[in-house]
Write a protein that binds this DNA or RNA. Structure first.
Lengths: 146, 146
DNA sequence: TCTAGATAGACAAGCAACTTGACGAGTTAT
DNA sequence: ATAACTCGTCAAGTTGCTTGTCTATCTAGA
């Protein structure tokens, strides 16, 4: 009956652990100047065609906040700003090779964090779990929930 | 094979949506001066026997940050500080009736957010899902993952 | 039982990640 | 053409944390 409250708590707990583990692992792989929130920016930029305004909307923050984040990522060598082919006002954002390396490190960390869960449940049950969650997936971008 | 990455994204997405919906609902129920992070504080304080230092550890922040949060909640009428029965240095934190009302509002919001998910999956499948997630639940407190 | 060290909480200053507001340059629609 | 909108930037302010320091109190060891 009241597995609803339990479910909420579980999702939050898993999410928190996931974020923590990914961040720790990414740091240990040499990207100590990245914080969890940067991952969401990388997700949008790696998808291609992103401007600062796009990024702002994706992250759910103001343009100014997104611009500061981009400035920081450019300074740290993860992102480059290129002229936009169709709009002289805008700048096209792209990951540098370092940016891609960080993205791969985060993906690998996510896989590593999930691996023990698959072990606990077994492959079949885990697959069902993923399928179930897929049906619940909200539309829209994955925003920094932390 | 690579449902691991999908699973990570799903958990983050669900968690984000959950936080957002709970926050919105709690606001609409009249608690507009509460932010998501406060929920974690309420969780610890409502469990009883909490001091500011306990709260700090629970939230994973410094004592000073916890003290500021408590000060804010006291000022807004959600929390009271009482003398600690066994330690003259410490102060025992307790929710006011308003604090309990906010906690109930949050619980109700969580249930409401989860309800459609149960509908989508059906009761049986949902119960299995909760059971599976329970096996994955990390120990320790549920911290603000946002 | 006295004393050295740890702990609870407060005061202060600083910082980082946002916000609101205003602006010039460029684009789009009428 | 021109009015309205949008992209990115500069500037200033707010907020939620941090580190550092302090007093009062508790606890453990000689």
């Amino acid at each position: 009956m009241d597995d609803a409250l339990a479910f909420s708590a579980l999702v939050l707990a898993l999410s928190g652990q996931l974020v923590q583990e990914i961040h720790t692992s990414v740091s240990q792989q040499g990207f100590q100047d990245l914080r969890p929130a940067h991952g969401f920016a990388f997700a949008r930029i790696s998808a291609g065609g992103a401007t600062t305004a796009d990024l702002a909307e994706h992250l759910g923050v103001t343009k100014q906040a997104a611009a500061q984040l981009v400035e920081e990522l450019v300074r740290k060598g993860y992102v480059e700003r290129h002229p936009h082919p169709h709009d002289a006002r805008a700048r096209l954002l792209e990951l540098t090779e370092t940016g891609w390396a960080a993205t791969r490190a985060a993906d690998q960390a996510a896989r590593a964090a999930v691996a023990p869960w698959r072990e606990v449940l077994g492959q079949a049950r885990f697959s069902e779990l993923v399928a179930d969650l897929t049906h619940l997936a909200p539309p829209g971008p994955i925003r920094p929930a932390w």
